[in-house]
Amino acid sequence: MTFSRPRRVCFGALSLLLCCSTQLLAAPAVATDSAQGETASPAAQQTENRSPYLSSWYNQDLTLIGSKDISFGPQPVDDVYLEYEYFGRKGPFELYGYIDVPKVLGIGNSHDSGVWDRGSPLFMEHEPRISLDQLTGRSLAFGPFKEWYLAFDWIYDHGSSQASRQNTLYAGFGTDIETHTPVLLSANLYGRRQWENYGAANENSWDGYRAQLKYIWPLARFDNGASLTYVGFTNFDFGSQLGDEPGRTANATVSTNVLLYAFTHLRFMFAARHFHNGGNWRDGTELNFGEGDFEGRSNGWGYYAGVGYQF
Rank of each mutant, 00 (worst) to 15 (best):
Y156M: 00
G208L: 04
W217E: 14
I216E: 04
W148K: 01
G247W: 10
G172Q: 09
E203K: 06
A171M: 06
E245F: 05
T175F: 01
S255R: 14
L260Y: 08
L189P: 07
L260G: 11
R221A: 15
D176F: 04
G191I: 10
D157H: 00
I177G: 00
G243R: 06
Y230T: 07
H158Q: 03
L228G: 03
G174Q: 01
T181H: 10
T253I: 14
Q212Y: 03
S160E: 08
D244A: 09
F145Q: 01
V231Y: 04
A151D: 07
F145P: 06
L219P: 12
F233E: 06
A200F: 09
N167P: 01
L150N: 01
V254I: 15
F173C: 02
R248E: 07
R210I: 09
A200H: 10
N202A: 06
Y170W: 10
Y215W: 15
A200Q: 11
A252M: 14
Y230H: 08
Y190H: 13
K146F: 05
A151Q: 06
V183L: 14
Q241R: 14
R248A: 08
G172K: 05
D176M: 02
R165I: 08
F233T: 09
G247L: 08
G225Q: 05
S160M: 02
G243C: 08
Y209D: 06
Y198W: 07
N188V: 06
F268E: 14
G208W: 01
A271I: 11
N202K: 04
S186H: 12
R193T: 13
S240M: 00
R193S: 13
W148N: 02
P182K: 12
I155L: 08
W154L: 08
R210E: 10
E245T: 12
D157E: 05
I216P: 01
D237G: 05
A272N: 12
